[in-house]
């Protein structure tokens, strides 16, 4: 199965390539566009991107594996990123993470068997005045309480 972006994604990719004085500088934005559309960057997509930018496949792989926000395997329909850096820890992030793990039945780095939710822990989200906080599909939520976490888990599960 080979990878091909949609026409809309391809248009965004061409625009990204045109923004930089050197084509290879567009690697991050191109990978982001691929991931936006497909949800992850799989091996076929890697090969496609390498060819498109004129890079060795290993150059794409080393970038893909360096940055935390890239996914190399499909994620759930929703992603839940839980901050447990210092301000969130002070506000009880560890306890909330335990609740989330128990509520979803999965640990960080895993996806629920029905494919509804992927759970990750992350470093400081730059939202420390709303600690403890999380991002749901890239949208900030916080400060969370035990009650709002329970509601959040229900919300995510019901979208299954």
């Amino acid at each position: 199965m080979s990878y091909l972006p949609s026409a809309a994604a391809l248009q965004r990719i061409e625009a990204a390539l045109a923004r930089y004085p050197e084509r290879t500088a567009a690697l991050l934005p191109v990978l982001q566009i691929v991931q936006d559309e497909a949800g992850f960057v799989g091996p076929e997509a890697e090969t496609w991107v390498a060819a498109k930018l004129g890079l060795r496949p290993a150059r794409v792989r080393e970038v893909l594996t360096f940055y935390a926000l890239f996914r190399r395997a499909p994620a759930g329909r929703h992603t839940l990123a839980v901050c447990r850096n210092v301000s969130c820890t002070l506000a009880g992030a560890e306890g909330l993470l335990d609740l989330i793990v128990a509520g979803l039945g999965i640990g960080p780095g895993q996806t629920t068997p029905d494919g509804a939710v992927s759970l990750d822990t992350v470093e400081c989200l730059g939202n420390c005045d709303h600690a403890p906080c999380v991002q749901v599909d890239g949208v900030d939520r916080g400060p969370l309480t035990r009650e709002s976490v329970a509601a959040l888990i229900e919300e995510l599960k019901s979208h299954a």
């Binding site: 850096n85 210092v86 301000s87 470093e123 400081c124 730059g126 939202n127 420390c128 005045d129």
Partner: peptide
Amino acid sequence: DEAEPGTFKDR
């Protein structure tokens, strides 16, 4: 980049 934990002004 504002990733220094405890910092949220540039946002």
